[in-house]
Structures are given as C-alpha cells and as structure tokens.
C-alpha cells in the first residue's frame, strides 16, 4: 500500500498551520478515511465534523487541494498522490478548530426566510392533488444536503463578506424550492429583492460547479428567481400601470 502525505490544517480562530501526516492508503479510500486514520493513530484530538460518510448529510465539507468538496465523496485515487494532499477547512466561515468551521450563520439566515404556507387542501381528507411533474420540478432543489460548499465558494460571501445583505446560493435554492413548491402561496419576492440581496449574484456559476448533489443552482434556481423579481419590480409596462392605478 502506498504512503501518501496529508497536509492538514491544524489551528483555531487565533491561527494555525499545516501539519504533514504520512498515511497508508488502500483501494477505494476517500479523504475522510485518511483523516479518520490520522485521528485514530497520529492525532487523537484532530477536530473533524462528519456523520453519514455516504454523501447524504453534508457534514464533512472541506477544501481539498484548494477545491471545496465533501471529504467522504472524494476518492484518493482521483488525486495526485506523489505530492502532499492538502486538507483544510472551508475558508468562507470562521474557523473553530482544525477542519471544523462555524456555520451557524446559515442557520440564522434560514430562519429569516418566510416559511412554507400551503393553499387550502383539495380533498376532503385534508390532502392535495399534486401531479408528479409538479413534484419533479422542485425535486432538484430539495435534494440539497446543506453542506454549504456553495456558500464557501460564493465570492459575494467569501471575498466581499456581504453576509448581512446576501443570503448566498444555498438559501436562494431554498427560496426557489418554496417559491416553486406546488402548494406554496407565500410571497417572498420583496424579501428576495431587498433583505436577501439576490441582485448581488452575478451568475458566475461557481456554486453550481462545487455542488456535490449536482444541483444546477444558478440556471435553475437563481436565474428564475431573478426573473420573477425583475418581472415584478422592473417591467416598464407594469411599472407604468402601477403609477396609473396607484397600485
């Protein structure tokens, strides 16, 4: 079995540095396996966040050789192993310790998005008539595992630190899943325009590229939401009508 060097960032909010851990790797291993081996054998106190180890929970997000990825879904055989493999925490979030970051901001943002509000039921038993195609339309957005890799890579958050004015791709996808939900009757367009700062997104599609669930974030979620906002607030004919009717 070959030995590969893992260059792991160790530190906390005060700062830190990379440490090298030579680790034996075997067929099929993913980066998270190597991190576990290091934790069990060389550094018991290594901080790492993970859960399902099957790409379903979105806990083990990190930057591997500079690329935002899930550690559990990154096979070592897909990386060059003759040089050290760098593993570091998501850089767009405050560091807690080693590979673990403070993602609590995301949870605060979600709370501020207006919750699901269904229309009245269609059937007497209190249920709804929904067609499969209506389910399929939002399925893509509901696949999101909240790994926040899209937030990590979004330059509005990462470089420009607009956390107070922009909710980031994850929550635009969330808003899309509600806005396009076949039962939802809530109106979130004003929030999207103002509080959620959808205008900040200049569709560079970085988020789409890193999504482990392959959600076409920009094209399928953000752009249609932008269109809805534009349609309501910037359509010149509608604007004129509003002036005339005073609406």
């Amino acid at each position: 079995m070959p030995t590969v060097t893992f260059r792991v960032w160790r530190g906390d909010s005060e700062g830190g540095d990379y440490q090298d851990y030579p680790t034996e790797v075997s067929e099929g291993m993913v980066v998270l396996d190597a991190i576990h081996d290091i934790q069990a054998q060389q550094a018991n106190d290594l901080a790492v966040r993970w859960n399902c180890k099957a790409g379903k929970c979105g806990s083990c997000s990190a930057e591997i050789n500079g690329q935002p990825k899930l550690m559990c879904m990154t096979r070592i055989s897909d990386l060059p192993i003759d040089e050290p493999i760098t593993v570091e925490p998501m850089r767009a979030f405050p560091s807690l310790r080693d590979l673990v970051t403070d993602v609590s901001w995301n949870y605060e943002v979600k709370k501020k998005i207006k919750k699901f509000k269904p229309r009245d039921p269609d059937f007497e038993d209190g249920t709804w008539n929904i067609q499969q195609e209506d389910v399929d339309r939002v399925q893509e957005f509901r696949k999101c595992i909240e790994c926040y890799l899209c937030q990590d890579v979004c330059h509005v958050l990462r470089e420009h630190q607009k956390h107070d004015e922009f909710i980031g791709p994850r929550f635009l996808v969330y808003a899309a899943s509600l806005e396009m939900h076949p039962l939802d009757v809530e109106d979130r367009l004003e929030d999207l325009k103002k509080a959620n700062g959808i205008g900040y997104c200049n569709i560079t599609k970085c988020c789409t590229k890193v999504c482990p669930e392959h959600i076409t974030i920009t094209d399928n979620a953000i752009i249609p939401l932008k269109e809805r906002v534009v349609d309501r607030y910037y359509d010149p004919i509608k604007k004129l009508l509003r002036v005339i009717t005073g609406g």
């Binding site: 059937f123 499969q132 939900h181």
Partner: peptide, 20 residues
Amino acid sequence: VRELEGWGALFDRTQEGRIL
C-alpha cells in the same frame, strides 16, 4: 404522513395526484 405534506414535504404521486 398527511400532516407532513401539510408542512411542505413532497412525495412521489399516483396518477390521481395522491401520495404514491
């Protein structure tokens, strides 16, 4: 299950538009 649908869960459907 029906209550969950009322809270926003989306399940696959039958031809009649009910939960498959």
